[in-house]
Every structure is written in C-alpha cells, then in structure tokens.
Write a protein that binds this DNA or RNA. Structure first.
Lengths: 334, 334
DNA sequence: CTGAAAGCGCTAACAT
DNA sequence: ATGTTAGCGCTTTCAG
C-alpha cells in the first residue's frame, strides 16, 4: 500500500509550490496557462487523485447528496433514486441512500448522522408517521438544505415536490363513473399520511360531484401488498351491495384485487373496474393490464433536484412548493 | 449558521484537554470512568456531533461502503441494495450507491472516484461487457477490498459471490421435461456475460441428459423486458416445430412470453410451460403465476458482506468464492 | 490517567 | 503569477 499521490508530490516533481498545483488543478486563481498545462499533465502522469476526504474536510462540506426513503424496494422509490443519482452525477454530486423503514425513530437517527457527514443537501420522503419536521430542524441549524418529495411532514416550511393526490383519485373515480360504474369502493392503506387522506378526499368529492352516495362500507383499509388487495376484494365482493368499481391506493393492491375478482368469476372491467396508483410496471404483468394513476417520477426528480440545487448554490434555505399533476394511464381494467 | 460544536468546545466547558474528550468519546485509551461519564454527558448536552469529515480525513479512510450495480431499478438489484444497506448499518457503515448503466466506461469512472472517497470497501456487480477487472486494480493499490456479486469479471482474483446459474437452468429445464415437455426453447439476452452463458450451458446439458435433441432454432436472444419476451414468443410459436416449454433468462421476459401465449390461444402450462429467473414479485402478478429460478438475495447479501468485512478488518485482500445454489419456485406456469 | 505536540491533505488569505 | 502562512477537527505518539 504505497501512500497515494498528493499535490505535494506533484509539486515536488515540478519544483513548484503545492498551492500552485492546487490552484491549477481546480482551475481557480491565477496560474499561467503554461504552468497549468504542465501541472495537469504531470498530475495525470502520476495518477494523482484528489483526496476528497481532505477536500471535503477543508471545505467543511462534502459533495454528497443524501436521499432518505422509507424503503428502496418499491418501484416508485427505486426509480426515483435511480433517476436522481443520474442527474446528481451530471453536476458532480455523489449520492448516499438511507432507508427509514417507515420508522420515525430511524429517520431521526439518519438525519442526525447526516450532519456528521456534512452532506451538501438532503432529499427525503418521510415515513407515514412523520407529522412534524422537528428532527429536520437540525439540518437548518447547520445550513444544510433539504427538500421533501412525495411525502412531506404535515406542517413544514421546507421546499417540497408533491403530487396532487386529490386530483389523482378524483380523476380515477370520475373515469370509472364515466364508463358506467355506480358503486365505487376505495381500498386505502392503514397509513395515516396526508397523501392517503388526500386520495380519500378526492374519492369522496368525485362521488359527490356525480351525485353518487358515499358509504362507509365502501371504504376499507390496511396493508400494502397484493395479498392485502386480494383480501379486501373478498370482503368487498361479499357485501350485499357489491361494488362495480374499485380504486386501490397502490398498484400492488389493485393487482391483488384483480386476481381475486378473476378467480371468483367476476369479469374485469365488465363486472368490476379497477384502478391503482403508481404506474408500477407490475401493472402490465397482470391481465387485464391495470389502469393506473401515474405520478411522473422524472418530473419529481427534476423538481426536487432543482429546488435543492438552488438552495445549495445560493446558500439560502427557501420554501417553495411544486405540485405535480397526475395522469391516468388507461389500460385494460376500466 | 453557528459553527458546529467540536471536541474543543466540550473540552473548554469542562476545563480539560480536547484529546481527553476525543479519547473518552471513542471509548479508547485510558480515561477515568468518572471523567468519561462527565465528558459524554456534557457532549450530548451541547449536542456535539463528531465531524466525520475530520475523522475520516484523519483516519485516511471513511466508514462508507460503495455498492456498484448496473441499474438500481430491477427488483433484484433494488432488493440487494436495500438488504445490504440494512446489514451495513448494523455495523456502522453508510452506503453510497452507483449505477454503471451497463457501461464499462462509466464503471471505470466510478471506481476511480471511489478511491478519492477512500471508501472502506466496494461491492460490485459488473456490466455485461466487463471482462477484465483491470479497472478494479486501482482499488488493490489503495488497499480497498472489493467483492463481486452475481456478475464478476471472467478472470478475477477477487472475492465473489455467485449463483450456480448452470444448475438453475438445468433444474428448470429438467422440471419441464418431468412434467412431460419435449421441445424446450430458451430465450436469452443479447448480453454476453458469463452468467448468461452458464444458463445456456445448463439448458443444453439438461436436454442432453434426457436424450432430447438440441436445436439452434430453439434458442433466441436479445432484449431484457416484457416486450422482448412477447416478441420472441411470437417467433418461437411461428416455428414449424413449436416449443412446448420455454425457459426465459429473466422473469420479465417470461411474463412477456406468457402474455403472448395467452393472447394467441395457447394454454399455459398445458400447451406451453414457462419458467423465468429472478423471483421477481412481478411474476405473481401474471396469470398463471410464473414459476421461477430463485437466487436467494439474503444469502448473496450476507455472503458478500461477510467477505468484505473480513477483508476490511484484517486489512488483507483475499480471494474467496461463494456459490449460492438456486432453487425453483413452483407456481402455476409449469 | 491526562496533556502537549504534531500532522493528515488541502485551500483561503495574504504577501511578494 | 507564484509563494508563504496558517488552520480546518481530529487522532496518534510521546511525555509527564
């Protein structure tokens, strides 16, 4: 393990001062073009790689962006992170990922650790139970900008990129009504987060605007996966007044619903229409293919990245809210 | 932006030397228990957070592990990374993720940048075209251990955790034969990587061991997604000698195959059986549910993490190879 | 058990 | 245009 090459090594080889090397390599300060070229040549010749640990330490800030999500596995988050990394890389940032596992306590620990790393900025989608953003305050104290995407604390003064979930649900229900459905059920999760309440509100409003009655029995909740959708569909279809349309809060749940329906002789969408949320590619695997409410991930990535970068570059913490309008992707289940 | 609290601040408050604070906080060196307690109390009182930038710089090594994958979106990689982060966190490591996008050039850039970060270790699944591991040599020079998982360069002297792909394909084909199939096709990707060749070899061997003829026409390749499976199934089913079983190199492709078959009046598995690779949850969404070759991700995570940690802790680069045995998950498509 | 000294590699500020 | 000085926050080494 030979010690790595430092700017001093490069300087010595050239018989000049290491500070000049530093300046030349970073294209800052005044250095004669000739010297600069010479230095760069020698540096790459020696295989010099800047010690980022030293750079970051000296600059009191790293070129790392942190992304905090509840769970990396769902397609929505995997895709967001994937896209975010690509765009961050273009501007020279690396990315550290953290999973809260939907646990506010872990989320807090993560945030605390971030300040130790002196990350340049943070993008987060909070847990279902994160109501306050108090554990993010510490970032403000350290002047580390942060942006929420998809899921933000209820009251926050930080920048955020959210989806118009009310409209997503509203449009989905409206679409089913327009295709002739009259008894539309809604399967939610047990998660209490704002975005799920917004969807519920949109569902109710659509019913109301179409003079359709709302019934408690038509709203069930709990779970996150296919099996939960299967289970809820069973409950719903055993009702005296069966639904003829079901809105699912996630595509996976919607797929579970379709599986139940088909297995039990209900035709989709003729007997029962189904719509999910997320535009998960999984929705294309099932039959009929699942109609879904799409939340444009590239838009969310771009939005949150811009919001973050602006704050980093201006060294100012700002408060801006971007709303992404969702779009129904019609496939075969309506 | 008040400057952060440093050990010197803590020391000053207590009227002692900052070195003692450093020692106390890290539970190293000889410090009177009483002093140690006092220091810890004061530190947390002041909200002291160690500056990891300074620590890492001083230690010439960060507590960050790097994970390099071709793409974070496929379930296999998302799940691997997700699990890996959890286990890494338990031991105090944070994780930086990088995507090569299947481009060796980018992979090289990533590796180069890693040495700047002085990461503690690297776990990588290489691109389809990474034959040599020459661009990883630089890590050796810096004494940074690395482990390959799932996809390793053809010749490598680094530790690795691989799946027995030969056996996976062999068992899958055998299973179809046992269920009475006699003309089994194989859909590969255009990727030339070892693991895909191993699967092909396993496919051929299973045919041979059952005295079934091998035919070039029964092997098609190209693509990665559902639509590719759809397309290839079409080609295959338009053959004069149609297959009655199809092995797909990925679940997504297998699902595309099933979609084509059903759409065109072939019954699955009665007319044609289908098996995929990866145990992607997507396989449960389709109907019939896709039988698949599972590669245990937890085993791979554990394996590669252990291999890495051993090297980090012993400051030795080692060469160990772990093979994970795959397992067929029988669902409805065989 | 605690303190003092020194330095990691780099860069901002000032001097020449 | 280049060099000098100084120091970021921390830890290792050596003294007391």
């Amino acid at each position: 393990m030979k010690g790595s090459i430092t700017i001093k090594d490069v300087a010595r080889e050239l018989g000049i001062h290491h500070v000049t090397v530093s300046r030349a390599l970073r294209d800052t300060g005044a250095v004669k073009q000739e010297t600069r070229d010479l230095i760069k040549k020698k540096a790459s010749e020696l295989g010099y790689k800047p010690n980022r640990l030293a750079q970051d330490f000296r600059n009191k800030r790293s070129n790392v962006l942190a992304v905090v999500v509840p769970d990396l596995r769902p397609y929505f988050f995997a895709k967001f992170v994937s896209d975010f990394m690509e765009i961050a890389k273009e501007v020279g940032y690396s990315v550290m990922i953290f999973q809260s596992g939907e646990k506010p306590g872990i989320e807090k620990d993560i945030i605390d650790s971030l300040i130790g790393y002196r990350v340049a900025g943070v993008v987060a989608s909070v847990t279902q139970d994160t109501v306050h953003e108090s554990h993010f305050d510490i970032l403000k104290e350290e002047n580390i900008p942060y942006v929420f995407f998809d899921r933000a604390p209820e009251q926050t003064e930080a920048s955020q990129v959210l989806v118009n979930n009310f409209k997503g649900a509203y449009d989905a229900v409206t679409a089913m009504i327009q295709s002739g459905k009259k008894r539309i059920a809604y399967i939610s999760t047990h998660y209490k987060h704002q975005i799920f309440r917004d969807r519920l509100a949109g569902y109710k409003q659509a019913l109301k605007d179409n003079n359709l009655p709302f019934s408690d029995k038509m709203v069930v909740e709990g779970g996150f996966f296919m099996k939960d959708g299967f289970h809820h569909a069973k409950k719903l279809m055993e009702l005296k007044e069966k639904p003829d349309g079901i809105l699912a809060v996630r595509d996976e749940i919607g797929i579970g619903v379709i599986k139940y329906l088909k297995k039990n002789g209900f035709r989709v969408p003729d007997d029962v229409a189904v719509i999910g949320f997320d535009n998960d590619p999984m929705g294309i695997a099932c039959e009929p293919e699942l109609t879904t409410v799409q939340q444009s991930i590239p838009s969310m990535v771009m939005g949150s990245f811009e919001l973050l970068l602006t704050q980093i570059r201006s060294s100012t913490l700002s408060f801006e809210k971007k709303i992404i309008e969702p779009k129904i992707i019609f496939r075969g289940s309506v």
